[in-house]
Amino acid sequence: MSVKNKDLAALSVDQLWRLRAEIERLLSSKIETEKRKLEQRLAQLEGRTEPKKRTRRPYPTVRPKYRNPERPSEIWSGRGKQPRWVRAQLASGKKLDDLLISQTH
């Protein structure tokens, strides 16, 4: 199947957007079907009967390490992005060690 540039150029913007949406829908469906086929084939090669399901490893719960001295209900484990209150405390001249929970009790 070939589409000539003249045919596409004759379409309105709305028609082109509808065509694009239809192409995306068809592509995503075909890709998903192909992916399932490949996973089944891989399972056969590995001697499994069902495709392998990916699961995330369980992460242990992390206890909070830092507490906001101004609002004790605000805590942070020290992982991930620093909360605003931590950045504000650091900007005011405090050190991260000053916010440790063992020091705020």
Rank of each mutant, 00 (worst) to 15 (best):
V3S: 10
V3H: 03
K4Y: 04
K4W: 05
K6W: 01
D7A: 11
D7I: 14
L8G: 14
L8T: 04
L8Q: 09
L8F: 13
A10T: 12
A10D: 02
L11D: 04
S12Q: 09
V13T: 09
D14F: 04
L16Q: 05
W17L: 15
W17V: 15
W17E: 15
R18M: 05
L19P: 07
A21S: 14
E22G: 13
E22I: 10
E22N: 03
I23K: 03
I23R: 08
R25M: 01
R25A: 03
L26F: 04
S28L: 02
S28V: 00
S29D: 02
K30A: 11
K30R: 13
I31N: 09
E32S: 14
E32K: 13
T33E: 09
T33Q: 14
E34R: 14
E34Y: 01
K35D: 08
R36W: 05
K37Q: 10
K37D: 12
L38W: 13
L38S: 06
Q40C: 12
Q40V: 01
R41D: 10
R41P: 01
Q44L: 09
L45C: 08
G47S: 04
R48V: 01
R48P: 09
T49F: 06
P51I: 12
P51W: 05
P51T: 12
P51Q: 13
K52Q: 13
K53Y: 07
K53P: 07
T55Y: 04
R56P: 15
R56S: 12
R57A: 07
R57W: 01
Y59Q: 15
Y59E: 10
P60F: 07
P64C: 00
K65L: 02
K65W: 00
K65D: 01
Y66S: 02
P69C: 00
E70P: 03
P72F: 00
P72W: 07
P72K: 04
S73N: 10
E74W: 00
W76G: 10
W76P: 07
S77F: 05
G78H: 10
G78L: 06
R79I: 05
R79C: 09
R84M: 01
W85A: 02
W85P: 11
W85Q: 02
W85D: 03
W85R: 06
V86D: 06
L90T: 00
S92C: 00
G93W: 10
K94T: 13
K95C: 01
K95S: 08
K95N: 08
D97A: 14
D98N: 11
L100Y: 02
L100A: 13
L100H: 13
I101E: 06
I101M: 10
S102P: 01
S102D: 13
Q103K: 10
Q103W: 13
H105I: 14
H105V: 14
